[in-house]
Design a protein around this nucleic acid. Structure first.
Lengths: 126, 126
DNA sequence: CCTAGTGTCTTGCTTTTTGCAAGTTACTAT
DNA sequence: ATAGTAACTTGCAAAAAGCAAGACACTAGG
């Protein structure tokens, strides 16, 4: 069963050089969409398997999840390891590089809590 | 000259309630694309007019810029005031709510500088 | 042996968004 | 009258998002 990399080789926007000398722009080439930081959030929460990600309250579509997991591994923000051979199945873990996004997620969560009453973050404080 | 709100009433994804009780998800409904945080960065840098935004190194397309300025004002992250009457022209300023995203931008910039060598942030440190 | 269930994807398709490039407007300057 | 300017809008093609169903390779149970 093939990966979906062939379906939309969409990461061309950061495959060739940076579009800007700004680190925010470079970071957003990886993170700037609705779902990527949410997948990272779930990894921070300790989720590691497909069903755990899809069970999150936002209801990520499975083709989007598959795409983001591939891209995040390509960018070195998560790593995958098989946990079963028949059928082959992967679990995902955040990497050191990915963990270094925690300040960004915490800052975003704090801003979100302040400006979207009724929302509540559930990060484990360091 | 009409606004482009009619062209794509696209903020329906956050017009009706939150898609999730998570503040990160709520924040990403506003910020989760490639350009929005870059426009905010430019506002932090003190840019306020159209030509200043388009002069940034990323080369934001003007229809995207127009769209994001409208949405950011709708969300209360910037305010616009006329600086000329003939023809009518607006300049944009970040609001308090928008300034409260500075920790997020700084965290993102720091992560980007570390992982994209050659990039350099230019924020005024508080 | 057959059927149902499961988890992890892929696929087909429609809708939405992105973004290119050119055009429009209402002015000012010469 | 013409050219230039700033701030957009527009038409269109391409890309991405996302719905819903399907495929696969197993396991469990009768």
């Amino acid at each position: 069963m093939k990966s979906n990399v062939a379906r939309n080789a969409s990461s061309t926007k950061s495959k060739r050089g940076l579009r800007s000398p700004c680190p925010v722009a470079a970071a957003l080439d990886v993170l700037g969409d609705r779902w990527t930081l949410l997948v990272l959030r779930d990894l921070f929460w300790g989720k590691s398997r497909y069903g755990e990600f899809t069970a999150s309250p936002e209801g990520i579509p499975t083709n989007i999840l598959a795409d983001r997991l591939v891209r995040l591994e390509e960018c070195g923000l998560l790593s995958s390891t098989p946990y079963q051979d028949n059928p082959p199945r992967l679990e995902y873990k955040i990497t050191k590089k990915g963990r270094e996004l925690l300040p960004t997620l915490l800052a975003l969560a704090k801003w979100g809590e302040k400006h979207f009453p009724g929302t509540k973050a559930h990060f484990k404080a360091p």
